[in-house]
Design a protein around this nucleic acid. Structure first.
Lengths: 112, 112
DNA sequence: GGAGAATATTCCCGTCAAGGAATATTCACA
DNA sequence: TGTGAATATTCCTTGACGGGAATATTCTCC
């Protein structure tokens, strides 16, 4: 899993942009207005979101319509599914926990 | 959705710790060793992960066993599901896209 | 092609977080 | 109680990032 998507979403305004765009495409001015951002700030954040592929531009006249790109969030969902497997297998399973403790014990330094 | 979990996962080493812990609980020394981190670095990153609830400590003797906490990642999964609804409803739907364009048009400044 | 709307870019500054090194703390055990 | 193992904390420095202000760019339309 790549870290870029997380750092892109780690900024409150960018996360708000993503959630706003989940309702549908918007042009820069509307995004800035709705989130009470300056226009340059909105553009800068949209640039970051575009660079990591979370967002996509579509020029219409002298406007630029931004919309979400499903792929990265879908990949994130896939990544999370691999964790669900871990929950089901290992969590609240005393035997597994014991095994981990023994593993830690076996990893001790035997070279001295 | 809270931004904290994203900033916690936005650091490569911390993301690696999460993925490592998905295989099972580990003590600090083993985490540091496996990821080629200094022990203080590992402790610091684990502190961040704990503070956002992604990880949980369990003291055993003078060791500290860290393991994942399912809740935050499950909440993230839930958050992503709300997006899936948007994909299915709105994506590749020309009518919706047109509606957005018109909405943008209607949001123009009427006060002048 | 000139004007104006919509958007992007640049420059500058303050803040914050990560890493390294050193040190402190906690715990078991002899 | 003292020693060593395991882990946490502090201090410091440096680089990256967000915000504001100003400016540049792009596009449409007359």
């Amino acid at each position: 899993m790549n870290v870029m998507i997380f750092s892109a979403l780690a900024e409150p305004h960018r996360l708000a942009i993503i959630e706003l765009l989940s309702e549908g495409p918007l042009q820069v001015g509307n995004i800035a207005e709705r989130l009470e951002l300056s226009q340059p700030q909105a553009s800068k954040h949209l640039r970051v979101l575009t660079s990591v592929g979370l967002v996509q531009v579509q020029p219409v006249a002298n406007k630029r319509i931004y919309k979400l790109r499903p792929q990265p969030l879908q990949e994130l969902e896939t990544w999370l599914e691999t964790f669900r497997r871990s929950w089901d297998e290992k969590f609240d399973n005393p035997e597994t926990y014991l095994h981990q403790l023994q593993t830690a014990e076996n990893n001790k330094d035997h070279s001295k």
